[in-house]
Design a protein around this nucleic acid. Structure first.
Length: 933
DNA sequence: TGATTCACG
DNA sequence: GACGTACGTGAATCAG
């Protein structure tokens, strides 16, 4: 047999395990539709291999290639050192069954697939690399694993496929401070905590490289260890010499693995379309199958799979969307028939089409209805005739629509019928549109909220997302009807025929989602949350939003002018100090001036390589140069003006004279609301000038604003959930919690706690809730990291139980994939199993979520119970700001409102939960929000 | 569109 | 096997 490998050959060795791992963590937990087999990692792996093949077609194409895997079971390194890789976590359960499938995928691509019992993939790669070099060929190793960097050299380089970065000798040297052939020696010294390679304690990359450069190699270094000047290093090297030698054995790759394949066997072959497509079809990968078939110039096989909807036991059969029948309802008789069927059925999915996304201005254009999957109606009511050429936009209506008045008159009884459930996606929107037309839509169900109660943290809850994920169907995009950007038209300008398909489909999708989700609610233990906190909140929020809050336009306008004047003055001073004119609002220009032109110290780069000019940086710089302080002042004013005094005026509704925010119920993963257009949850309060803006939020004549807020609710919840006795007692006794913890940490009497010490304790208290790190606390308090660490240690020592609680949360997040609030709200934490910084962030989020979420539950419950609680008082709830509720009330009823609302808020957890700490509510009243707060 | 910055709890 | 560094949001602005 003649071997075809020699000079001019180019061998690619793909580190299969790292592909799998990356694929697994990069993708959501996909399952095969027909049987639920987890295949996310396989899908990612296939995509990566395919992309690799597509990217390597040119003149540089490899002549030979192989994908190398780690074999299961122990390797020779385990015999060398029993603790080897002892730190490694077990393979996630979801991944295990996918491993053999990735081998199968490799073969389906007609790529050689190599593994060898007793050896790691890295050793096989080392062996093949050596063999190829001996025959005069070139080698590219597709991996970013630092363990493989020792192989780089003449004719051998690495390629990080994700970052598309080549790693040659130069890059290796940058990384390890020594050329590739000395990498093993350096690695032996620094060790590797992930693989449990011990190395030399206290020696990092820098020191290791320095030592190896000085002594040439490891053996020589250890032989001359006595001569090293630094006592610590000398001692370490002498004391741990054996351990270091062992480490070298562990990190050094074996390039003489006995292999059953030869280089000749690795010749690149075209994939056999039939084999490859068969495999992809078996995996039920629709998108990649199509893409591959296209590229190979063959027809894609039909993949028929049942979606999750059809698999769910209670889920009814649903016809494919391609067979759906959507009809336009244009006269009384047709609508009567639909109404009759709705009454028989007892429920209807409903969706409104309007002229705007702003509920307060949106005018109704049409209504869609659906009671059974695949059959929906659209009732066009206010579509305009084709007006192309009519510049003024006709007031006339298009032909073939029934009158709005007539249709609403017919639908009103159904929409208000207690016996007919109205199902919507984000139904608050439709409810508000109807409310402005004098129709109180009730009772309601909401697919967005069903999803939120069950899937918070997993994905968004918009209709398109849900449809694609759970119905496997991409709905018609609104863009296709109304366009986007400058040429966007209103929905009433869309021709009826086009609107029918889009609008009716939305109702169809909503109904299908409801039929799928509703039965799952109970199994996912989400019924209570949904029924007590999501569904009943819809009408409450709708009323708050429609009520709006009065804003004094003149006051804002005066503030705007004042800010503008001050800004102009500051801008002149800034230009003067800078010696040139530039755009102060441009961070890049500012950075260039400060750190480039003026050469000030302390320049940090953002991750895109620009100079950072954040407040943190500028504050540090303020002592260096007056320019920084001026810019900070300017920035504050610019923010206040553009985001608040200017923008808020634009949000005053011309009809009501009030500002109507919109609350996103399913926006924040933790259960918090989010306020948008405008955001009334971030109105300034921390600075004097900012508070002036709150003065513009006012009550009507003869009324007052009342604000009630939970005092330190998250800390109280933390004390309860983590069951920290000392904290619970402090709250029970009504002590100032920050002073108390300060006294405890610093072991001084409470009377001796200074404001500064209290401030620090407060930062630690909140840090604890956020999953604190010494780094974060240090930055926050502007103290050295070691000092921050001391605070934390003292805190954890003084309040035992916190560690255990937090570890328990992480453990649950890992095991279950979600964490829970006291009321049973589940917040999913899919990122927690990913690697690196992502996982660290996910752990902190997981620690915070039960606390923030429980606080959110409590205020949601308070809001749901509030209307009943305040009874017939002439008062209206207007705003929610996470731990605060703002009301407008007749002056004489203010005190009574405070008493009643406070009672509702303080007892909001009951009867579901009895907290072991008291909840306290502070209250205030005044002509404006600043006075009330 | 993404990055940066900053307002709130 | 590294990588960034306190949790959760929304909005304005610049720059490409």
């Amino acid at each position: 047999m003649s071997c075809n490998f020699g000079k001019g050959s180019h061998l690619h060795l793909i580190d299969g395990s790292s592909f799998i791992f990356r694929a697994f963590h990069a993708l959501p937990p996909l399952t095969r539709p027909s049987d639920g087999l987890p295949v996310g990692a396989v899908a990612g792996f296939v995509n990566m291999i395919w992309r690799y093949i597509e990217d390597n077609k040119g003149p540089d194409a490899p002549t030979h290639a192989a994908v190398i895997f780690d074999a299961a079971g122990p390797t020779f390194r385990d015999e060398l050192y029993e603790a080897y890789k002892a730190n490694r976590e077990e393979m996630p359960e979801d991944l295990r069954p996918q491993i053999p499938l990735t081998r199968e995928a490799t073969r389906a691509f007609n790529l050689a697939c190599i593994e060898k019992e007793g050896y790691e993939a890295d050793d096989i790669i080392a062996t093949l690399t050596r063999m190829a070099r001996e025959k005069g060929g070139e080698v590219t190793i597709i991996s970013s694993d630092k363990d493989l960097m020792q192989l780089v050299g003449e004719g051998v380089e690495m390629l990080d496929a994700m970052k598309d970065r080549r790693i040659g000798s130069k890059e290796v040297e940058e990384r390890f401070g020594v050329p590739p052939e000395k990498v093993v020696d350096v690695m032996a010294l620094i060790g590797d905590p992930t693989d449990n390679v011990p190395g030399a304690p206290g020696i990092g990359v820098k020191t290791a490289a320095l030592l190896i450069r000085e002594y040439g190699d490891l053996d020589n270094l250890l032989a001359h260890a006595e001569e090293i000047k630094q006592p610590k290093r000398r001692q370490t090297l002498i004391e741990y010499a054996d351990q270091i030698r062992l480490s070298r054995e562990l990190v050094k790759l074996d390039d003489h693995v006995p292999l059953d394949v030869t280089l000749c066997d690795l010749e690149v072959k075209r994939p056999d379309p039939e084999v490859l497509l068969d495999f992809l079809k078996k995996m039920e990968f629709r998108t990649i199958t199509k893409r591959v078939a296209e590229a190979l110039g063959v027809e894609a096989p039909e993949i028929e799979t049942k979606t999750a909807a059809e698999r769910a036991p209670e889920a009814p059969e649903m016809p494919p969307f391609s067979k759906a029948v959507y009809e336009a309802v244009t006269d009384r008789q047709a609508l009567e028939k639909w109404i009759e069927r709705i009454n028989e059925r007892g429920w209807v999915a409903i969706d409104t089409e309007t002229t705007s996304l702003d509920e307060m201005r949106a005018e109704l254009v049409g209504i869609s209805l659906c009671m059974e999957p695949g059959h929906a109606a659209y009732v066009p009511l206010a579509h305009r005739p084709d007006s192309s050429g009519d510049l003024f936009g006709s007031e006339a209506l298009a032909e073939g629509q029934m009158s709005m008045e007539e249709a609403l008159e017919m639908l009103k009884p159904v929409l208000e019928d207690e016996a007919v459930l109205k199902i919507g996606q984000n139904v608050k929107y439709d409810a508000k549109v109807f409310a402005r037309l004098g129709i109180e839509m009730a009772p309601i169900d909401d697919t967005m909220l069903l999803s939120y109660a069950m899937h918070a943290g997993l994905h968004g809850h918009g209709m398109d997302t849900l449809s694609e994920l759970y119905l496997g169907h991409k709905p018609v995009a609104i863009k296709e009807l109304i366009g986007s950007g400058k040429s966007q038209i209103r929905f009433d300008q869309v021709p009826v025929e086009k609107a029918v398909r889009y609008a009716a489909e939305d109702a169809d999708v909503t109904l299908r989602l409801w039929e799928l989700f509703k039965p799952q609610l109970h199994r996912k233990r989400a019924t209570t949350i949904y029924e007590t906190e999501e569904r009943p909140l819809v009408p409450v929020l709708a009323r708050m939003e429609m009520a709006g809050i009065k804003v004094d336009r003149d006051a804002l306008s005066r503030l705007s002018s004042m800010f503008a004047q001050k800004m102009a003055a500051l801008e002149a001073e800034i230009h003067e100090l800078a010696g040139e004119k530039f755009n102060v609002a441009s961070p890049s220009q500012l950075g260039e001036i400060l750190f480039g032109k003026m050469g000030l110290p302390g320049g940090k780069r953002t991750k895109t390589g620009h100079w950072s000019t954040s407040a943190q940086v500028l504050e540090d710089l303020a002592t260096e140069h007056p320019l920084a302080a001026k810019v900070l002042d300017w920035r504050q004013l610019a923010k206040l003006k553009s985001t608040y005094t200017d923008a808020l005026q634009a949000h005053i509704d011309p009809e009501t004279g009030r500002v109507h925010t919109s609350y996103a119920i399913a926006g924040a993963n933790t259960g918090r609301l989010a306020s948008t257009e405008p955001n009334l949850q971030n109105i300034p309060v921390r600075t004097e000038e900012g508070r002036r803006i709150r003065e513009a939020f006012v009550a009507e004549e003869g009324r007052l604003l009342v604000s009630l807020d939970y005092s330190q609710i998250e800390l109280r919840i933390f004390a309860h959930m983590a069951d920290i006795d000392a904290l619970k007692h402090a709250f029970a006794e009504g002590l100032d919690i920050h002073t108390m913890t300060a006294a405890a940490i610093f072991e001084i009497p409470m009377e001796e706690v200074t404001p500064e010490i209290r401030r620090r304790a407060k930062a630690v208290n909140y840090g604890i809730i956020y999953g604190l790190s010494a780094f974060g606390l240090a930055r926050n308090l502007r103290i050295p990291r070691a000092e921050a660490q001391e605070f934390i240690d003292a805190y954890l020592k003084r309040f035992p139980g916190i560690r255990a609680y937090q570890q328990d949360i992480i453990e649950r997040a890992r095991k279950q994939g979600y964490v829970e609030t006291l009321f049973g709200r589940r917040i999913h934490t899919p990122e927690i199993e990913s690697g690196g910084a992502q996982a660290a962030a996910a752990r902190r989020a997981a620690m915070n979520a039960p606390i923030q979420g429980t606080a959110a539950d409590i205020i949601r419950r308070a809001m749901v119970h509030m209307e009943r609680g305040i009874g017939d008082l002439p008062a209206q709830m207007l705003l929610q700001v996470h731990d605060e509720l703002v009301f407008e009330v007749a002056e004489e009823a203010a005190e009574e409102l405070i008493a009643r609302a406070r009672a509702v808020m303080e007892h909001a957890p009951e009867p579901a939960v009895k907290l072991s700490v008291p909840l306290e509510v502070d209250a205030g009243k005044g002509r404006n929000w600043a006075e009330a707060h």
